[in-house]
Design a protein around this nucleic acid. Sequence first.
DNA 1: CGGCATATTGAAGTTTGTCAACTGCAGTGG
DNA 2: CCACTGCAGTTGACAAACTTCAATATGCCG
Lengths: 253, 253
Amino acid sequence: MDRARDGQFQATHQAAGGRRASGVMTVNKLLRLNSREKNILVKTPIMASLGPSALTKMLDLATAVNYESRDILFREGEEAESFYCVLSGYVRLYRLNKDGREADIRICGPGDTFAECLLYLGPNYRYNAQAAENVTLARFDIARVRAAAEQDVDISRAIMQSLANHLLTTMDCVANDRLQTAPQRVAHFLLTSCPKESTSASIRLPFQKSLLAGKLGLAPEALSRAFSALRRAGVTVRGRLIQINDVNALKQI
Amino acid sequence: MDRARDGQFQATHQAAGGRRASGVMTVNKLLRLNSREKNILVKTPIMASLGPSALTKMLDLATAVNYESRDILFREGEEAESFYCVLSGYVRLYRLNKDGREADIRICGPGDTFAECLLYLGPNYRYNAQAAENVTLARFDIARVRAAAEQDVDISRAIMQSLANHLLTTMDCVANDRLQTAPQRVAHFLLTSCPKESTSASIRLPFQKSLLAGKLGLAPEALSRAFSALRRAGVTVRGRLIQINDVNALKQI
DNA sequence: CGGCATATTGAAGTTTGTCAACTGCAGTGG
DNA sequence: CCACTGCAGTTGACAAACTTCAATATGCCG
């Protein structure tokens, strides 16, 4: 059975979060970050503001971990031992209702930190996390980082900035869900993906459309229809490539 | 013209946030908290975890301010000088779309802190805040609290806990909006308002139904219909009084 | 009781979700 | 090289849920 292709299998047997090397899976082998991974990590928002000593402490606490597409990182209700920072790939954070329907809460890409809010809260994860594609993550032990933050103001300040940012982003999400229709959400997303001050642009989606649909709180079909509704505003879609002829027209949607 | 009853007037002439005494308005007079207000403030989540010295510092930084129902506390885009903690009454945080439609992001009641995320972020408010009824608030100067947090780990820890809490609450909000229908949202709200482990309950809404509707992301009419849909699950509504005959039946909605 | 704001109800109308069929593409294996 | 397969995405038809508008009812406070 192909684990990466069978959601049901994933749903009952959690992936253990191993690091794979040359096609061979070595479960739960946590490694220090290699230099390429370190270079990515130190540029992420949560690390970039740290002073040299705080940065060293955090790098010492980080381990690297890989997941394959559709692997489950953790589930709602499990005891939270770690929080994560994405080095490459995308991770979905989502909830289930009692019928088993899923709703994405957040899509985390390179540089994004997630579950760090549990540093100062209850002992359990509050949502599910799944790799949307093959991902590399930096993993941090919650208890150790909490201890480090108590001693180093740089670290606690970085965590606060991260929390404050996520809070505002999530509040934006609530407001957008409640105020905007599907084409408006898509237009808004495209505009935030455009370089500032440009009159036209062409964008390559960094992930599948189904993932974008979830991020925007839409069914994949609704995203499709939103794109075709945006054609009259000069938006051309071919695969992951999106051509925007008139940025100002998009703003009027 | 009655300021408290004319939304348009409020929309163009911002209330200055004065403290009123015996019907006479004294604009912008910021006062130290009286002992009753202090007693409330020290029990709020953000203050309760502070040690004695941190608590004293924060109380010294706090000023009391009253607003009348429908007063605007601040608007999106304004420079953020203060964050607030609700001592009594309710405050709506909301956004406008370009058609002028409003969507509530959060309803803050006694003990709730808001806009504290700006301690570590950009200089502007990111949403509007309006008194939903007559309110008393503790106001904190952002720059001063930021300085205090740098020196006192208790304070920065309290802020982090507050941020983490709000983040999780807001993520819950996104998930609930995306997963639950109107009756389910109302049922969920009622269940969180019930004492734990009770089989039946009677609740008094702490605010107007229109405010509850906004909190749940619904039009007032949709809330009304949700309540009448819940009648068959043993929910009786008369004014602000709500009788729940069977808590378990509500959980099945 | 009057006056006003809040809440409820009914009747459209929108928007989105759901289900199903179909397309297009990429990879597989004969 | 080509049929087969599996998956992502699109499209259509329909249903469900919610909003909006309008009319009416209820409740509150002078």
